[in-house]
Simulated assay, not measured.
Amino acid sequence: MASHLKGVTKSTMTDEARKALCEYKRENSSCTQKDLQLWLENKFHLKVSQGTISNTLKRSADYLAANYLEKRKDIKRHKPAKYPDMEKVLYEWFLQYQDRVNMT
């Protein structure tokens, strides 16, 4: 799939950057999405599309929630587990055998 940002390296925002963007927009409500793109580039060295800005602002209530970033600030994508019980058991197995088996 071709990027709609020609010549721009694809980058993904962390939740920390998303929250900062939402807070900045809340404090500077007159900023355009183009202004927010430039702000992100200067502050986080990220080049993102206008669509990414728009989608982030749509979910700003989630990102501004107080406990949203408690676990990890470096998360980039949120994908719920299809089989959470199986993933939990597999993760425990992985932790138990990671020193004995070559895993890739």
Rank of each mutant, 00 (worst) to 15 (best):
residue 71 K to C: 12
residue 74 D to C: 02
residue 75 I to K: 04
residue 73 K to Y: 01
residue 104 T to P: 00
residue 24 Y to G: 01
residue 65 A to W: 14
residue 101 V to N: 09
residue 46 L to D: 08
residue 42 N to R: 08
residue 93 W to S: 07
residue 49 S to N: 02
residue 75 I to A: 13
residue 56 T to G: 09
residue 86 M to D: 13
residue 74 D to A: 01
residue 58 K to R: 02
residue 39 W to M: 07
residue 27 E to K: 00
residue 30 S to F: 03
residue 91 Y to D: 06
residue 6 K to W: 11
residue 24 Y to P: 00
residue 85 D to T: 05
residue 87 E to I: 06
residue 75 I to T: 03
residue 44 F to W: 15
residue 69 L to I: 08
residue 22 C to M: 02
residue 104 T to L: 03
residue 3 S to R: 12
residue 59 R to N: 12
residue 37 Q to I: 11
residue 34 K to T: 11
residue 100 R to V: 15
residue 95 L to N: 11
residue 13 M to P: 00
residue 36 L to A: 06
residue 86 M to C: 02
residue 98 Q to I: 10
residue 100 R to C: 14
residue 56 T to L: 08
residue 87 E to W: 00
residue 24 Y to K: 14
residue 47 K to S: 13
residue 83 Y to A: 09
residue 98 Q to H: 06
residue 93 W to A: 05
residue 24 Y to D: 02
residue 29 S to F: 04
residue 56 T to C: 06
residue 10 K to I: 07
residue 18 R to S: 04
residue 38 L to A: 13
residue 73 K to H: 10
residue 63 Y to L: 00
residue 100 R to E: 14
residue 16 E to Y: 05
residue 100 R to I: 15
residue 73 K to P: 01
residue 66 A to D: 15
residue 43 K to G: 01
residue 32 T to V: 02
residue 94 F to T: 08
residue 88 K to Q: 10
residue 82 K to H: 10
residue 40 L to Q: 07
residue 66 A to E: 15
residue 97 Y to M: 11
residue 77 R to Q: 08
residue 14 T to V: 05
residue 92 E to I: 09
residue 16 E to R: 11
residue 30 S to L: 12
residue 79 K to S: 00
residue 20 A to S: 08
residue 76 K to W: 09
residue 28 N to K: 08
residue 16 E to Q: 03
residue 67 N to F: 10
residue 64 L to W: 02
residue 50 Q to C: 14
residue 54 S to N: 12
residue 53 I to T: 05
residue 77 R to W: 02
residue 62 D to N: 12
residue 21 L to K: 01
residue 80 P to Y: 01
residue 28 N to H: 13
residue 78 H to N: 03
residue 12 T to R: 13
residue 37 Q to M: 15
